[in-house]
Design a binder for these strands. Structure first.
Length: 373
DNA sequence: ATAGGGTTAG
């Protein structure tokens, strides 16, 4: 089409930009942006917001903000895209700031804006701001009909630790989807309420069984567990020390539900085995994985080796982290602490010396008014 | 025909 440039209209460009977003194609996305300018489509607000979304998806927040700044009449969709870009790129503080700015220039947030803002609150653990948004939802009854928004609200309460509010909300949402259930299961799992989490999962399975034996109409309403839900289920087993159940759910996920475990599922299993002190089994499990283990998995084994005083295994895990070139200074601290616990002072001194040469800083975070890292 | 949204291991 570019050879016959007169045929390129704003719709063609829009779909090309969407394709770039979907496939995270940064260079092609930029080329599409160039064409938007060359062909004089800059006043098209649909194209501008799509471009913002494309830059957000390719981790280019600076360009998102620049596109936003150059839009003359910013509507609620433009503002929401900007907030979303900061959420997607792990800048929830900035997202909340923009959310405030938007209200100061009298642009009224809609359901989508509030959904995104709640996501930022969840990431920050900002319960007070989340509750403020909940209040503004309550003032618009039609907003409570929006399931995306309700799921975001539920997730906010879960991540901010208000499990009671989360449960109340869950019970009050009449029409739930698989994400609603997943949120609540993860919520219980995160709060150490493994039994509640697994009870919910069983309730969902029972509900599905009863519906699939009934008429065709109810079959359309089946809420089939997906891979994300199994992460919640496995987390619950892990936090409750339920090894055998965890292994059973892992098998059931593959065999009964036909789901392919992803890296995070293997991570859950390693965590489960490690927490129960089955470190050798965890190590064999990692070696037998069909996909390459990442740093989180080796770090789980390392941390657990430290707890259980398994020096050799800790050293293996640390060297794997080194190979992946993503090790944090905390990984070395963990290993160095095992050495001292076992009186291996020479090893400890050598490791500490290596650490001084690398000079990678550690980090922590604390909330003082807002979250600082 | 056109734009922005919710669940995911430590």
């Amino acid at each position: 089409m570019r050879k016959k440039i007169s045929a390129v209209d704003s719709y063609a460009l829009l779909y090309v930009i969407k394709a770039c977003t979907k496939k995270s194609l940064a260079i092609e996305g930029k080329q599409a942006h160039t064409l938007v300018i060359k062909l004089g489509y800059e006043p098209n607000i649909f194209l501008q917001t799509s471009l913002m979304d494309m830059y957000a998806g390719t981790a280019n927040v600076a360009d998102v903000h620049q596109v936003f700044d150059e839009i003359p009449n910013k509507n609620v969709v433009c503002w929401t895209s900007l907030i979303s870009a900061y959420v997607q790129n792990q800048k929830p503080n900035r997202a909340i700031e923009i959310f405030r700015q938007m209200q100061m220039v009298d642009v009224e947030p809609d359901q989508v804006t509030l959904t995104v803002a709640l996501s930022a609150c969840a990431d920050l653990g900002a319960l007070d701001k989340g509750e403020w948004i909940h209040d503004s939802i309550s003032r618009k009854p039609e907003f409570s009909e929006d399931l995306c928004l309700m799921n975001a609200l539920l997730n906010m309460y879960v991540k901010c630790g208000d499990i009671r509010k989360a449960k109340l909300l869950f019970d009050n949402v009449k029409i739930k989807d698989i994400r609603t259930w997943t949120c609540m299961i993860v919520g219980h799992a995160l709060h150490g309420q493994a039994e509640e989490a697994l009870r919910l999962f069983s309730a969902l399975e029972a509900e599905n069984k009863s519906r699939s034996s009934k008429s065709q109409g109810t079959k359309d309403q089946l809420l089939v567990p997906n891979d994300v839900m199994f992460i919640g289920v496995l987390m619950a087993c892990s936090h409750a020390g339920m090894v055998e159940e965890g292994k059973r759910y892992f098998r059931s996920m593959i065999e009964e539900y036909g789901l392919k475990p992803r890296l995070s599922h293997f991570g859950c299993m390693v965590d489960l085995l490690c927490r129960c002190g089955l470190l050798n089994e965890a190590y064999s499990f990692i070696l037998a994985m069909p996909i390459q283990p990442n740093a989180v998995i080796w770090r789980t084994l390392l941390g657990s080796s430290a707890v259980h005083g398994k020096v050799e295994l800790a050293a293996v895990a640390r060297s794997k982290l080194g190979e992946l070139e993503v090790s944090l200074v905390g990984d070395d601290v963990a290993l160095s602490n095992i050495y001292s616990a076992n009186g291996m002072w020479e090893e400890k001194i050598m490791l500490r010396h290596e650490m001084r040469q690398r000079r990678t800083p550690g980090c922590s975070s604390v909330e003082v008014g807002k979250l600082h890292s």
